[in-house]
Design a protein around this nucleic acid. Structure first.
Lengths: 203, 203
DNA sequence: CTGCTGTTATGACAACTGTCATATCGCTTT
DNA sequence: AAAGCGATATGACAGTTGTCATAACAGCAG
């Protein structure tokens, strides 16, 4: 029987190597390529046309979410499994919107990875059940694009004035957006708001 | 020849399994136990008396840095290799102070892990050279314990008043400490100061 | 066309933040 | 004992932040 061909993408080289070693211990799975960022992964998928792509989200060049979208568009025969540290509803939603077939957390037992690869290869979907629930009841991203841009910068430590200049807005407007974002998120200041939004994957 | 006995500690189960699989592919290395947090790791080291402990830093229950200190004290025959995402001078310094013999970054090639284990087992030290340099010229942690406590909380989004209450200080005192920390770090407000301190591993 | 949403803006005000000078209180060091 | 140091506190001041009311304008759905 032919092995399931897998490409693995992950920016921490040590973890990439370890994940590949883990998958290689399975008799029915073969790692045909490794990628250290999104762009490399896309190239590798184009070259090897694997059955499954296992990818991290936070990577340089191209995030796993963008990558998932590109792969669906260009190589729809390859199924994408997102493998990430982040149990963030916003990430899950974006992953599914981008056509990912699996969403797996790095704190699940390592045996689940091979399982997920097999199931996704059979056309099934694999989504972490706790996270799916959380995504359901934490609702959709309440932030507008502007609010996101501004809250992001505020979380970096920039002042309202600096943000205003950077985005060509008046300082008052920036304060308005921040006030709005703070109230939407139930925070009591910009820092807490940024922290909450990050935790949800909305930033 | 007897294999090098290794205990691996890492809080992300998937990564833990993958690292173990990676080390198991080496003919001269055996993973005798796995631990999902610092306390488990300490127990495992006591039970197996391994040659080398490979541990992450940021874990629940007990951090890898504290763990390294405990291991040196109780089981000095076990050598500790820190394996972490964070290229933070402060972490490196604390790791070496705690008696760690190796400090390896997760974005190094996976082949280096087995190498590091072998060298440390032979009594050598293994420290990421770039990081060692950076640690050198970024100087020592300039923050006092109080400044650290306060800056940490400020970075969480707490107001001066909340921090004051929590630490039984006056609000003015909290503002004084923050002002001091901001100036030491060359930041322009508390958020940026917290961000810089985090990046250095001082928080 | 009308109402709704998102973007941008202004002004005013209270609250919070960052800075600085100054002071007290224990504890060391000399 | 005197000097110095670190931790804590106070008060004053300017600057930043958060809130609210209000408004103009564009685009889009009904």
């Amino acid at each position: 029987m032919k092995k399931i061909q897998v490409v693995v993408a992950e920016d921490q080289a040590m973890v990439l190597g370890a994940l590949a070693a883990l998958l290689e211990t399975e008799p029915d799975i073969a790692v045909c390529a490794r990628a250290a960022n999104g762009r490399e992964a896309l190239t590798a998928v184009g070259k090897h046309k694997p059955d499954v792509l296992v990818t991290d989200i936070e990577m340089p060049e191209m995030t796993g979410l963008t990558l998932a979208g590109e792969v669906r568009e260009r190589y729809p025969q390859t199924r994408v499994v997102i493998l990430t540290t982040f149990a963030r509803p916003g990430y899950l939603r974006r992953a599914l919107d981008a056509g990912a077939k699996g969403y797996l957390l790095k704190d699940r037992p390592s045996a689940e990875l091979a399982d997920a690869v097999r199931r996704v290869n059979q056309g099934l979907r694999v989504v972490d059940p706790d996270l799916a629930l959380e995504a359901w009841d934490s609702g959709p991203d309440p932030l507008t694009e502007r609010e996101r841009q501004i809250l992001w910068r505020a979380g970096e430590g920039k002042s309202s004035g600096e943000i205003a200049e950077e985005l060509h807005l008046s300082e008052g407007t920036v304060r308005n957006y921040l006030s709005e974002a703070i109230s939407k998120l139930g925070a009591s200041n910009r820092v807490e708001a940024a922290r909450l939004a990050r935790a949800k994957g909305w930033l």
